[in-house]
Structure formats: structure tokens, C-alpha cells
């Protein structure tokens, strides 16, 4: 294979990795929007807290002398998911439920406030410096001759991609098959009617926050290992990117979040790869503006029908 093609493949791999992580975070935005029609701007912070919890768990296990990788990963993942989910649940309970049903701007402002609060809470509790995150999963497959450009597909990239696929499949099955999933769909179609039919809508709304937060925690652990450092502000940009991915794919649509994430990730890495890294964020947010102008429902979103 020619060098140019290998280079393209490498950038594609980079883009798909980061894109699938965006998709995991985007689920939280898209599910919450699908059900109560609000943007949970504190979601990026939930992801950041997931990464911090995972790091604390990993460090804790290391001091206890536990080094068996699958166990470390499993414990870190479970801890991160539990802490992030409770955080997601608590945020909804404290900041959104009391203002639900008011003017749309009010929950939005509440969400931004929550986001600032959580960021500063972690600043205080964990310090504001960048903290190194152990890689844990090291090594890679290599393609191409060693003298020329070599494509490297690292194990962590494969892990990120496969974990995302598993999470997405599990979520789709859950939404389409399970009882709670069916209730979720009912609530997203018509909250009032679902409530009249005996669905505990408060419980369903809490459940969407918990699911979104748990997936964000998975992304937090994976990206922490992939990037190599975390800081209290890193949820903010990731949140914005994931939000862009959700809008791109069609907010409210779960396959849309996946598609949006992948497109955004690939667009970013191709921009850095063929233009310049300086234009990366310009391109991703231009995509957001373009999609809002020309196809506000996103690629896979359904046009909103005014309910009477």
C-alpha cells in the first residue's frame, strides 16, 4: 500500500477512536433531550467526574497491591459508573426536577450553573493540575514496512471501539426490548399521556440520567487511559463536542448519536491531518452551525411534530 493511503488509514483510525468516545458521551445528551426536551449541560462534568473516580480507584488498587489488569479495569469501571450515575441522578433531582415544566430557559440556566458548580467542586477537591492517568492497556498492532510509514492500531483504540459498540448494542436492545425501555419510549413520545397510563415518569426520567451518566463514566475511563492525563476542565470541551455530535446525528436519536460522534471524530482528525490542527475546532463547530441551518433535526432525527 502506498504511504499516502496508510497515512489516511491512520488518521481514520484516530478519528474513529475519538468519535466513538464522543458517541458514548453524546448518548447522555440525546436521551435526556429525547425525553424531557432539555440540554443537560452538566453532562460533560459527569464524564470528567467518571474519569476522576476511575483514576482514584486505579490508584487505590495499586496501593493495595492489586495489579491483575482485568480486575483493575473492572473495579475502576464499576466505581466510575456508580459514582457518575449517582451524580447524574442527584443532579436531576436537585437542579432539574424542581424547575421542570417551567419556561425552557430555566432548566438550561440551571444546567449551566450545575456544570460550573461541578467543575469548581472538582477543582477544590482534586486540585486544578493535570494529573497523569496510567495507560494500563499498552501495545499495538502495526501494519506496513518499518522503513516507511507504519500504521499503528493500539490495543486501547481497539478497546475503545469495541466497548462503544457493546454499550451501544446493549442500550439499543434495552430500549427496544425491556419494560423500562418501552416506558422510556412512551415517555419520550408523550410525557403526559404516559403518566396517565400509569408509567412512573419521574422514575423513567431519573433512569435516563443514570444511563447517560453511566455511559459517560465508561468514556471517562477509556479516554483517560487513551489521552494520558485529566484535569477538572476537560469535561467541558468534550461535552461541547459530544453535544455537537448529538445534534449532528439528530438529537433524541440513539443511532444518530453514534453516527454523529463518528462523523465528528473523523472530520476532526482529517482536518488536523490534511489541513492543520488549528482548524480542528473551527471545523467541528462549523459543522454544528451548518447542520442547525440546513437540517435542524440532524442526520437521523425525525422532524418534530407539534403535539396538540
Amino acid at each position: 500500500m502506498s504511504e499516502a493511503l496508510l497515512y489516511f488509514i491512520q488518521q481514520l483510525i484516530n478519528g474513529l477512536t475519538i468519535g466513538s468516545a464522543y458517541a458514548l458521551i453524546a448518548i447522555g445528551y440525546t436521551m435526556v433531550y429525547g425525553i424531557i426536551g432539555m440540554i443537560n449541560f452538566a453532562h460533560g462534568e459527569i464524564y470528567m467526574i467518571g474519569a476522576y473516580t476511575a483514576l482514584i480507584a486505579i490508584t487505590g488498587l495499586a496501593t493495595l497491591g492489586v495489579t491483575w489488569l482485568p480486575l483493575v479495569l473492572l473495579v475502576a469501571l464499576v466505581c466510575a459508573m456508580i459514582v457518575s450515575s449517582s451524580m447524574g441522578w442527584a443532579v436531576e433531582r436537585v437542579a432539574y426536577r424542581p424547575v421542570r415544566g417551567r419556561h425552557r430557559l430555566i432548566p438550561l440556566i440551571s444546567a449551566i450553573g450545575m456544570s460550573i458548580f461541578l467543575q469548581n467542586y472538582v477543582h477544590l477537591a482534586q486540585g486544578s493540575r493535570n494529573i497523569g492517568f496510567p495507560s494500563l492497556i499498552e501495545g499495538s498492532f502495526r501494519f506496513g514496512s518499518p522503513e516507511n510509514f507504519q500504521v499503528s492500531l493500539s490495543f486501547i483504540q481497539i478497546t475503545i471501539f469495541i466497548t462503544t459498540l457493546i454499550c451501544m448494542t446493549a442500550l439499543s436492545v434495552f430500549i427496544s426490548r425491556s419494560r423500562t425501555g418501552r416506558a422510556c419510549r412512551a415517555v419520550s413520545q408523550d410525557l403526559g399521556m404516559a403518566s396517565l397510563l400509569g408509567i412512573d415518569t419521574n422514575r423513567i426520567i431519573s433512569a435516563t440520567f443514570v444511563i447517560g451518566a453511566a455511559l459517560a463514566a465508561v468514556a471517562g475511563l477509556l479516554l483517560g487511559m487513551y489521552y494520558g492525563s485529566i484535569d477538572p476542565l476537560f469535561g467541558f470541551i468534550a461535552g461541547l463536542k459530544a453535544f455537537t455530535a448529538a445534534v449532528l446525528g439528530g438529537i433524541g436519536s440513539i443511532p444518530g448519536a453514534m453516527l454523529g460522534g463518528l462523523i465528528l471524530g473523523v472530520a476532526e482528525s482529517m482536518t488536523s491531518g490534511y489541513l492543520s490542527g488549528e482548524y480542528k475546532d473551527v471545523i467541528s463547530f462549523s459543522l454544528l452551525i451548518l447542520i442547525l441551518l440546513f437540517k435542524p433535526t440532524g442526520l437521523l432525527g425525525k422532524p418534530e411534530v407539534e403535539k396538540i
Binding site: 488518521q11 484516530n14 478519528g15 477512536t17 475519538i18 479516554l223 487513551y226 489521552y227 492525563s229 476542565l233 476537560f234 470541551i237 476532526e268 482528525s269 488536523s272 491531518g273 492543520s276 490542527g277 488549528e278 480542528k280 475546532d281
Partner: peptide, 13 residues
């Protein structure tokens, strides 16, 4: 080339 301060993903670079 420039990068964005605060960015985390430098795989493309």
C-alpha cells in the same frame, strides 16, 4: 503548526 491549549487528543498531530 499550532495546537489548542487544553486539548487532549494529539493522535492526528
Amino acid at each position: 503548526e499550532g495546537i489548542t491549549a487544553g486539548a487532549k487528543d494529539f493522535s492526528s498531530l
